[in-house]
Lab assay of single mutants.
Amino acid sequence: MSDQEAKPSTEDLGDKKEGEYIKLKVIGQDSSEIHFKVKMTTHLKKLKESYCQRQGVPMNSLRFLFEGQRIADNHTPKELGMEEEDVIEVYQEQTGGHSTV
């Protein structure tokens, strides 16, 4: 019986991991920090939209990076291997420009 009891508790931990929340720091170019608590399985588009709304800027005017890689709207913290207190960097999107060649 103890084996049966242990097995469901392991499964519960697996389920808990799926719905687990982590805190992420979003740091802007001006070094301002906003902290977000997100589920591991939530699409990061929600975090990006919330950040842009707080900053009063359109979402397409900023780019969000985690460990140097651009974050897509459909990425989740779990897919990117994010952990508690990880940092997302935000930069002004640069458009235009010309070749110097």
Rank of each mutant, 00 (worst) to 15 (best):
I34G: 02
E67H: 03
S9P: 15
E84W: 14
L13E: 08
G28K: 05
L24P: 01
D12G: 13
G68L: 04
C52F: 02
D15W: 05
I22C: 15
V101Y: 08
Q29R: 14
A72E: 03
S9L: 11
V90T: 14
F66V: 02
V101D: 06
E85A: 13
L44V: 00
Q29T: 05
E49F: 07
G56K: 01
N60G: 14
Q55Y: 14
L13D: 13
A72K: 01
E49T: 00
V87C: 09
E20I: 12
F64W: 04
E11G: 15
G96N: 03
L47Q: 02
V87A: 13
M1G: 06
V38S: 01
G96V: 00
P77A: 07
K78G: 15
L47G: 03
K46Y: 11
K48Y: 01
Q69G: 08
K25M: 03
H35G: 06
Q92K: 12
Q55W: 08
K16G: 11
S99H: 08
K48W: 03
L62Q: 15
T76I: 00
I71S: 03
F64M: 01
L65I: 11
V101E: 07
A6P: 12
I88K: 02
F66W: 11
E33D: 04
D73F: 04
Q94I: 08
D30W: 03
L62D: 03
I34R: 06
L62A: 00
E5T: 13
G68V: 02
N74D: 13
M82L: 05
T76Y: 01
P8Q: 15
E89Y: 14
E11I: 03
M40N: 12
I27P: 02
E89A: 07
G56E: 07
K17I: 08
L44N: 01
V26F: 04
E85L: 14
Q53I: 00
F66A: 05
Q55D: 09
Q94K: 07
L13P: 10
A6Q: 11
G96D: 03
Q92N: 06
T10Y: 14
S31D: 00
G56C: 06
Q94M: 11
K17N: 12
A72G: 14
S61N: 03
E20G: 13
P58I: 02
K25V: 10
E83L: 14
Y51C: 03
L62I: 15
F66Q: 02
Y51S: 01
